[in-house]
């Protein structure tokens, strides 16, 4: 049986870099000490979620890849001999930035990168101001622990993204995320949003017969905009199996490491009884590439 011990790091972040990096390093070390070979960090784990407002000085946070952040994280992966999934604000050229996931191998080398394809622009999540949509496509990253379908946050609402990763041979779907509540929303609305977020990703697990690893930020972050209420990131990082079954789930308000031994052979077993890939009507799906069927 092909087993893989995975760990998700759910943490809160601040712009005290020393503190954020140290905490992050400690949690990753703890996960590795627990035997995890694949460790996944949340979206933009190097600091606070700066997209609550649009401000040009925030571009100063971006770093080239490779750069100082990849040096530090690559060294961590190498020290612990783990595959590490990270999420960085990439400075590709002056005025050209991406929201980029970087996967490190056990020897610290970069196994591959993925540039976030779907960029949101909602109140409090003004990402279109900062991030150019990805141009690397939905290409899984081949690593020593398996082929990783790494997507980022807003991508998680798009079945097409998950499907294309599955069709390209991904063994796992992975979503580093930063999502939370507007504190002024009612508890009922907050509940609906959180449920929808878990449900759609479990749907990707079912539809594609793949495990899903979703890692979200936790904690409250104020907005630089005095009119805005800030964001309460809802944590709830989780791991679902290839039938969408919830295997592990973190709390909504606490920093946590979730560790789980995944059976990588279960996908094939599940796909044999639920052969959704077999029955796809690819002859009739052409219109999926149109904006609207009008």
């Amino acid at each position: 049986m092909k087993q893989l011990k995975v760990a998700l790091i759910q943490q809160s972040c601040s712009d005290n870099q020393t503190e954020t990096f140290a905490k992050n390093g400690d949690m990753v070390r703890q996960a590795a000490a627990g035997g995890a070979k694949l460790v996944v960090l949340q979206e933009l784990h190097n600091g606070s979620y700066f997209c609550q407002t649009e401000a040009t000085e925030q571009f100063d946070r971006a770093e080239p890849i490779p750069g100082p952040a990849t040096e530090r994280l690559g060294a961590l992966a190498k020290e612990l001999e783990i595959v590490l999934v990270t999420s960085l604000f990439e400075r590709r050229a002056p005025g050209l930035y991406h929201n980029t996931a970087v996967v490190f191998e056990q020897d610290g080398s970069i196994a591959g990168t993925y540039r976030k394809m779907h960029i949101p622009d909602d109140p409090g999540f003004y990402e279109k101001f900062y991030f150019t949509p990805g141009d690397l496509g939905f290409t899984p990253i081949c690593t020593s622990v398996g082929t990783l379908g790494v997507l980022v946050c807003w991508d998680q609402w798009y079945p097409e993204a998950a499907r294309l990763m599955a069709l390209a041979g991904a063994d796992l779907l992975i979503y580093p995320t930063a999502i939370g509540w507007d504190p002024t929303d009612t508890p009922e609305e907050q509940g609906r949003q959180q449920d929808a977020w878990v449900t759609i990703q479990r749907g990707h697990a079912v539809a594609n017969g793949l495990p899903v690893l979703s890692v979200n930020r936790v904690g409250f972050e104020t907005s630089p905009d005095p009119q805005a209420a800030g964001i309460r990131f809802w944590g709830t990082s989780f791991i679902a199996g290839p039938q969408g079954e919830l295997l592990a789930k973190a709390s909504t308000d606490t920093e946590e490491i979730i560790t789980l031994e995944l059976d990588l052979e279960r996908s094939e077993t599940v796909r044999r009884i639920w052969p959704f890939l077999r029955d796809r009507r690819i002859d009739a799906y052409g219109d999926l590439t149109r904006r609207f069927r009008d």
Binding site: E105, S109, A111
Partner: peptide, 11 residues
Amino acid sequence: SQIAEVSQQVR
């Protein structure tokens, strides 16, 4: 080789 390259070859 680096592990990333070996991973590609094993795939």
